[in-house]
Deep mutational scan, measured.
Amino acid sequence: DHDVVPEDKFQETLHLKEKEGCPQAFHALLSWLLTQDSTAILDFWRVLFKDYNLERYGRLQPILDSFPKDVDLSQPRKGRKPPAVPKALVPPPRLPTKRKASEEARAAAPAALTPRGTASPGSQLKAKPPKKPESSAEQQRLPLGNGIQTMSASVQRAVAMSSGDVPGARGAVEGILIQQVFESGGSKKCIQVGGEFYTPSKFEDSGSGKNKARSSSGPKPLVRAKGAQGAAPGGGEARLGQQGSVPAPLALPSDPQLHQKNEDECAVCRDGGELICCDGCPRAFHLACLSPPLREIPSGTWRCSSCLQATVQEVQPRAEEPRPQEPPVETPLPPGLRSAGEEVRGPPGEPLAGMDTTLVYKHLPAPPSAAPLPGLDSSALHPLLCVGPEGQQNLAPGARCGVCGDGTDVLRCTHCAAAFHWRCHFPAGTSRPGTGLRCRSCSGDVTPAPVEGVLAPSPARLAPGPAKDDTASHEPALHRDDLESLLSEHTFDGILQWAIQSMARPAAPFPS
């Protein structure tokens, strides 16, 4: 592969990997390779389809078979030569091979799209000592099968071997295949498990690692696999990028399955594409389908809103127990993405979901129960707010008499603000006073009005108090039968009158 990737590009890729991570280095090298001529790309395919690569990765054979028959990708048995050289000459001794072996032994695996480039050397060096003999053996194999790289107009793939297949390693990572398949204008990513390549439709969760975000852009890794992070704060999961590491605690105790298979379609829109997988259930989501939507993949363990709600429900009964003089119970939860139609709101002032922060849900004790107040519409209280300059209440639009249902020339009671006709409430011909108009209920007259088809109010509507207090003497005590009587009149003013009279009014101040 030294004929494909020059030394300066190799060093530039290593520097970019240390600065921005393996995914960015892979993407940059792939983009550079696509700008080369067809001879360089053909050399790339020839390096990929060597015999030892085909033996190690069985899924490469179907890719090789898909090439046109007129494309010669065979390799000479006596060494490598550029395709432009007409004579089959043995190339001179390859010093770059020693360079590659020494550099890969030092860096474990470079971040390139060629056999030198995919593992994360920093994480491997940190986690190597417990498994040094086995990992050293794996390093000797890295130059042979560490990076199976493929690129063409139909298929483009980048393979990364790992030393996680050490025997006896619980939940060992089998390997990473960062794979971009450009077929019919689409893009897919796969993962390699035990020599087999699994596409998103049959993606397997190998051991402790999972394909957290099938994305090839942005600074985030394709698999949430930063070796420096180790395990999740809650004892979460091992990262795919942690090559040759000792077994780590796999999943939280509440995880239903340690080796679950995540779905390959969004649980909201039932469509495929780039998904984020939940650590607590097999569901996966688009970032845009979450509520609120996320802009980037959160670091650490992530769970959907259903799993978060289940966790909150487990903690909430203990938080609601009476604990005198104790601060509110704080339950730190990872930043969760909410699927459509589901929402768990945190306290005000918290950062938005999706940031690399930890939301704190506070379970406050329930407030003391209070008697429910009568629910009145805002339009129902409008007549009470229509007060004239002299303190006389004006008529609201649409006000109707509670007896006849007519809204023409209605009066407004100064005591309960109900609309009424003087002739309907006082049919006996009582003279109307000039000021202080009161309806039949507030004036103490319980004589029913002779209106055909309208039920008369119940005599129990009024329960006047002592006459010594004029204001308190007109406080009506309405009961269920009074409400039914008012409802039978089918008037809004009657219902409003009952609601206003049912509310307690402050006692009249004593004259000074």
Rank of each mutant, 00 (worst) to 15 (best):
Q242T: 11
Q242L: 10
V246T: 07
V246W: 14
P247M: 13
A248M: 04
L250V: 12
A251I: 13
A251K: 09
P253Y: 15
S254K: 04
P256R: 12
H259Y: 09
K261G: 06
K261N: 09
N262W: 08
A267Y: 08
C269F: 05
D271K: 11
G272W: 07
G272R: 09
I276E: 14
P282I: 10
R283S: 13
A284C: 13
C289D: 15
L290I: 10
S291L: 11
S291F: 11
L294A: 11
I297L: 08
G300D: 08
G300R: 11
C304M: 09
C304Q: 15
C307S: 15
L308I: 13
A310R: 07
V312M: 13
A319F: 14
A319K: 10
E320K: 12
E321V: 11
P324Y: 14
E326A: 07
P328T: 12
P328A: 10
T331A: 10
P334M: 03
E342T: 07
E342Y: 15
R345S: 09
R345E: 09
P348H: 10
G349K: 04
G349L: 06
G349R: 10
D356S: 13
T357Y: 15
V360E: 10
Y361P: 14
P365T: 13
P365M: 07
P368N: 11
P372T: 12
G375Y: 11
L376I: 12
L376D: 13
P383S: 11
L385Y: 14
V387I: 07
G388Y: 00
Q392A: 03
N394D: 11
L395Q: 10
A396Y: 08
G398V: 12
C404I: 02
G405N: 09
C416Q: 04
A418Q: 00
W422T: 06
H425C: 10
P427T: 08
A428E: 09
G429H: 09
S431Y: 13
R438L: 07
C439I: 02
S441D: 14
C442G: 03
G444S: 06
T447G: 11
P448N: 01
G453S: 12
P459S: 10
A460K: 07
P464A: 12
P466H: 12
K468E: 04
D469Q: 09
L478S: 06
L478C: 03
L486P: 05
T491K: 03
D493F: 04
Q501A: 15
M503P: 03
A507C: 14
A507I: 09
P509C: 11
